[in-house]
Design a protein around this nucleic acid. Structure first.
Lengths: 225, 225
DNA sequence: CCTACCGATCGGTAGG
DNA sequence: CCTACCGATCGGTAGG
């Protein structure tokens, strides 16, 4: 299964890291430089959770700071703006989605699978990243797209296009064998839409599992042979 | 085709109309009392469009007033709060969706259709209300659900449940005949999810039509006989 | 429905 | 990363 598109290089973060510009304040803790990365990641996690639950515009930078155990001005030490935080959350989400997808495609057994089974794997990987516990990053990307600035939208769009492109060979194979009854482009949109919407209603507390759901979805989408 | 649930009565608006409380200001125009309703509806339309494009939290009441040709304080003459405006938009959206659905179910020819054709009609009606030109009300409901207050959410949930319940007999019939390969409950969620997601990508300017899309969707969801 | 306004909040910054 | 703060904006209201 050859990807129809290669993955674009990871886009540059917030241009230059702000640390270089502000050498004032408390001296850096000598124990570990990675301390910064940890705090930054805590901010990202807190932001993702709040953006998902309340929406981007309804979440204040104070909410985020508070949730990460910081003071109100501190998030701006790590991110130059609230917009930059949103972008960082979405970018992290897409990178995790792409990594997860690569893991599936790179599996030794994958190439020998039937098209239907390949689809099953892709669907399962998609659900994992979408519905897995604590996975708020991708849902934020799906729901807060319009809150993104135009240039950042373009950057993310490349990642999304790469992710979606990897579904096409599988869908094409299914159509060639008569198992898919819609044009592949439309099928991709409808299938991913059905999966993405599950964020709105999927509730593991009700006994639903990602595995069963994926099985039902694939069974419905493709014709039996 | 008997509905499994009857439609709940339309819930009360904003309790009492505010006109009764504020007899001050410019004397009412003598020409027509319905003038009020028109202005109110212009506000609703403006709000729906802006909420959809920018999101609820990112839209100011000043934006809405301005878009309806009013001054900043004037929306509060018609709606007691920004929240009430959001609720009114969503409620109007659901009422139009239900009315459109009733029109389909009430058609004399409907009862004699095959389950697959019934599904086609339901899908088409759904797309109309979702993707039709100027139909911003239902998309707002789909995207701004979390911005709603809890009690208002409950009210709308009844309308949504009624709308969705009417799909069930059709899905059940399809499953009975072996044309639907997922449990009806899951199928309903996946199918409506696929349809709802189209709000994100459907673009009539690119030559896409609601009719063609609906045909492809149904062809993909159900097994050929 | 307009005018004039208030209190609260919010993103962001200077300086350490 | 904290303290202390600013300027702008926002939902909402009194009164006509």
């Amino acid at each position: 299964m050859t990807p129809t598109e290669t993955l674009p290089a990871a886009p540059a973060e917030d241009a230059a890291p702000p640390e270089a510009k502000r050498p004032r304040g408390r001296p850096r803790k000598t124990e570990d430089e990675r301390d910064d990365g940890n705090r930054r990641h805590e901010l990202l996690k807190a932001a993702a959770q709040l953006f998902r639950r309340q929406g981007f515009a309804a979440t204040t930078t104070r909410d985020i700071a508070n949730s990460a155990g910081m003071q109100s001005g501190s998030p701006f030490y790590h991110f130059k703006s609230k917009d930059a935080l949103l972008f960082a959350v979405m970018e992290a989400g897409m990178h995790s989605a792409l990594a997860n997808q690569q893991r599936v495609l790179g599996d030794a057994a994958y190439a020998a699978l039937s098209p239907a089974d390949k689809l099953r794997r892709l669907v399962h990987a998609h659900f994992e990243v979408l519905l897995g516990p604590g996975n708020d990053f991708v849902p934020v990307m799906l729901y807060e797209w319009r809150s993104l600035q135009r240039p950042q939208r373009k950057v993310l769009h490349k990642l999304i296009a790469a992710y979606e492109a990897l579904w096409m060979p599988v869908l094409q194979a299914l159509q060639d064998s008569g198992q898919l009854k819609a044009p592949v482009g439309v099928a991709r949109l409808l299938i991913l839409g059905a999966l993405n919407w599950s964020v709105q209603w999927f509730d593991p507390a009700k006994g639903a599992t990602v595995e069963a759901l994926g099985g039902h979805a694939v069974a419905m989408f493709i014709q039996e042979v």
